[in-house]
Amino acid sequence: MPSLKDLKNRISSVKATQKITKAMQMVAAAKLRRAQMAAEEARPYSQRMAKVLSNISNAMEGREGVSPLIAGNGSDQVHLLVVATAERGLCGGFNSSIAKMAREKARQLQSEGKEVKLFMVGKKGVDALRMEFSNAMVEKIDFREVKHIEFTNAETVGARILEMFENGEFDVCTLFYSEFKNIMTQIPTAQQLIPALSPDKSDNNTADIFYEYEPDEEEILGELLPRNISVQVFRALLENGASEQGARMAAMDNATRNAGEMIDSLTLSYNRQRQAQITKELIEIISGAEAL
């Protein structure tokens, strides 16, 4: 049985923890709003980009010399997994669910006899996968110094991916990140970047319009595709940013509630013990007086 003093210490320490988690929750809520806004503001660009891309690839269909970024380089031996995670922990299952998804994919590919390379964006993913795949990690980038993700950050990642592709270091590239649905749900997602999956044609209502191209299609496509990679990475980073804050908010909310419950039960046993001690002292005094 812990003494009264022990209980008192524990209550005050849990209270301090609760204050921290509460503060973290509020900070996450404020950051979430900003991150969500950034993610939403970035959406028009990637949507318009996808539209232009599907227009051109429609026009290019059936022609010779389609870029390997769309068609692939004819092999799928070496897979590059780009794993984007957060820089900080204490955000529930956010980092581990992305890492888990990437790990499963990597194991599956390895069991099929394919070579797996990992491109880690973010420190926490490195920590989670270091044990198993330290040899496969070919590249690590972290944005610890970066306060707000900007397009140039995504461009560095995109440029590195393209450089590796041009050097023939991999055949297929998949991007892992967490899509932001709402505060409670973030969905770990795998998205194939290279070769690009053909865009959904069902919602294409401009297919029958005849476009002119200036300069010609190939040149535009040659510019557009590399940029599209960076745009996809950028989108993933922003979704990740919002997801991270959402997950942290939910996790810290939970932690705060748990701390509250703990304080309640500790206070209860503290009071009980105090009462027991008072009763004990009274009995001692009374029986002492009776003995006289």
Binding site: E41, A42, P44, R48, E150, F151, E214, P215, F234
Partner: peptide, 22 residues
């Protein structure tokens, strides 16, 4: 519409736009 990766910069009705093409 003028769109940058960060946000939708401008979305308005216009009479004419001069574009610097390559």
């Amino acid at each position: 519409e003028l769109v940058s990766p960060e946000k939708l910069v401008l979305s308005e009705q216009a009479m004419q736009v001069v574009v610097p093409g390559t």
